Structures are given as structure tokens and as C-alpha cells.
Amino acid sequence: MTGTAWPIIIFFVAHWYLSLFSQTFFLHRYSAHAMFKMNKFWEKFFFIFLYLTQGSSYLVPRAYGALHRMHHAYSDTEKDPHSPLYSRNAFVMMWKTKDIYNAVLRREAQVEDKFNKNLPEWAFIDNIGDMWISRIIWGTLYVLFYIYFVPADMWYLYLLLPIHFLMGPVHGAIVNWFGHKLGYQNFDNKDASRNTLALDVLLGGELFQNNHHMYGSRPNFAMKWFEFDPTYPVIKVLHYVRIIRLVNPDAKA
């Protein structure tokens, strides 16, 4: 690989991990599971951070949180919004999830009250992030960046663009497909959840699906001595500097 391709690689990796952090920290562990609390200033800060890092694939925390709570309640049953057991491939699962997500977002779906309680909302950012014009602008910026930096003889780097466009759903699809298809189980959760990686540096701890489905409110998704959840140390630091407050900082389960 020539040196001129490094801006693309750095941009892709940065987008991957910043968007991933927003998803696992703010959408998943905060919005869906309320593993920690934060004041309104920091909540709005992370709303903006979510918008900037997810860009064209912005996911509304209220809809994400409700959908994810449904996933836990109905894990790997016909009511699960995104179980690989009821989809022939990951693309079909993603499309099904999109339809349910949009129905929840537009308040067109019948959602039990318990799934809608205490979900963070900021209409200003949510409305902007969900607008097609916003998604198109972000997508255009990604394309322009690639046009400027991709060397003429490395055209294949443009194949990374669809991942940028759909970064949030791509992360979710990998987690929900492989996390319920491939790996080992520490616990019998009566579902198909798996721990795909013991050192989950690829998806920030999200691939400890078996552990997480057993202890849904536990902020550290790793359980065994050889497992590592890279998001948890960041959460601990944010707790210690009082940006967030863990509901149960010593939680073992």
C-alpha cells in the first residue's frame, strides 16, 4: 500500500470506532439500558457527538432504545426485531430491522409501555439526523473526501464508501448476526446468543452477546478472566471524572 492511501485508512478507522463508541456507549448502554446517568448538558453533548460520528446513518436514541429492549425481551423468537434465526441472511435481517425501527420511530407500531420508559429525546438533533437532506449531505462529504484522497490506481478503496453511508446499521448487523450465530456460550440464556470474540477490539465489547443477554444491566460486557470489553474502561474513566454516574459501579451482574 502506498503512503498516499493512508488518509483513507485513517479516516475509515476513525469513523468506524467513533461511530461504534457512540452506538455502544450512548445508544446501547445509556439509552436502552440506563447503566449510568448524566446531566442534561452531557446528554446533549453526546447527542451531538452521536450525530457527528454516525453522520448519514444517524439512529434516533428513542427508537433504538425501544427496539433494543424488545430484542432482549423476545430474544431469538418471532417477536425479536433482529434475530438471525428468522432471516435467511444478514441483509434480510437488516431490512426487517429497518422497517420495525421506522415504525417505532414514526410511532406507527404498537410498542408496550415498558419499552418506551425513560428514553432520551432531543427533537432538534433527532429531526435533523433523521432528515434525508442531512444523510445526503454527510454522504456527499464522505464521497468528496474519497475523491480528494484516493489514488488513481487504488480505485477499490471506493468500495469502503457504502460502509461509511450505513455505519450504524452495519455495526448492528454484525453484532446481531454473528453474536447470535458464531462463538461460545458462558451461560444458557434460552436463546442463541454467543460471545463471538474473547477480546472484542473490533466491536467495542458488543460481541459479548451471551454475557450481555445474561446480565443486561451490567456495564462490563466481559465476564471471564480472558475476556476484554474495551468500552468499559472508558466508562469507568468517565465515571471517575463525573461526566457520568454508574448506577451500580461495583456491579458483578
Results as ranks from 00 to 15, higher is better:
residue 148 Y to P: 00
residue 42 W to Q: 07
residue 144 L to S: 10
residue 132 W to N: 15
residue 202 L to N: 05
residue 2 T to F: 06
residue 145 F to S: 04
residue 144 L to P: 00
residue 232 Y to E: 01
residue 228 F to M: 08
residue 59 L to A: 14
residue 52 L to P: 04
residue 63 A to P: 02
residue 57 S to W: 03
residue 196 T to D: 03
residue 65 G to Q: 02
residue 213 H to L: 01
residue 75 S to V: 11
residue 15 H to G: 08
residue 12 F to T: 00
residue 205 G to V: 11
residue 99 D to L: 14
residue 37 K to T: 15
residue 222 A to S: 13
residue 117 K to Y: 10
residue 126 D to F: 00
residue 91 F to M: 09
residue 233 P to G: 04
residue 188 D to T: 08
residue 90 A to K: 09
residue 76 D to N: 07
residue 165 F to N: 02
residue 117 K to D: 10
residue 190 K to H: 14
residue 228 F to H: 05
residue 219 P to S: 03
residue 105 L to P: 01
residue 46 F to Y: 08
residue 30 Y to V: 03
residue 235 I to Y: 09
residue 247 V to G: 02
residue 244 I to M: 04
residue 51 Y to T: 14
residue 28 H to M: 02
residue 221 F to P: 08
residue 5 A to W: 08
residue 247 V to K: 13
residue 179 G to W: 13
residue 142 Y to M: 05
residue 214 M to C: 13
residue 88 R to V: 11
residue 158 Y to T: 03
residue 114 K to D: 09
residue 38 M to I: 10
residue 129 G to V: 01
residue 245 R to S: 13
residue 77 T to E: 05
residue 25 F to D: 05
residue 240 Y to V: 10
residue 20 L to V: 08
residue 59 L to Y: 11
residue 7 P to T: 07
residue 194 R to K: 12
residue 158 Y to W: 07
residue 210 N to P: 05
residue 221 F to Q: 06
residue 94 M to W: 14
residue 210 N to G: 01
residue 119 L to H: 10
residue 123 A to V: 15
residue 235 I to K: 01
residue 51 Y to D: 07
residue 173 A to C: 10
residue 167 M to L: 09
residue 127 N to T: 15
residue 128 I to S: 14
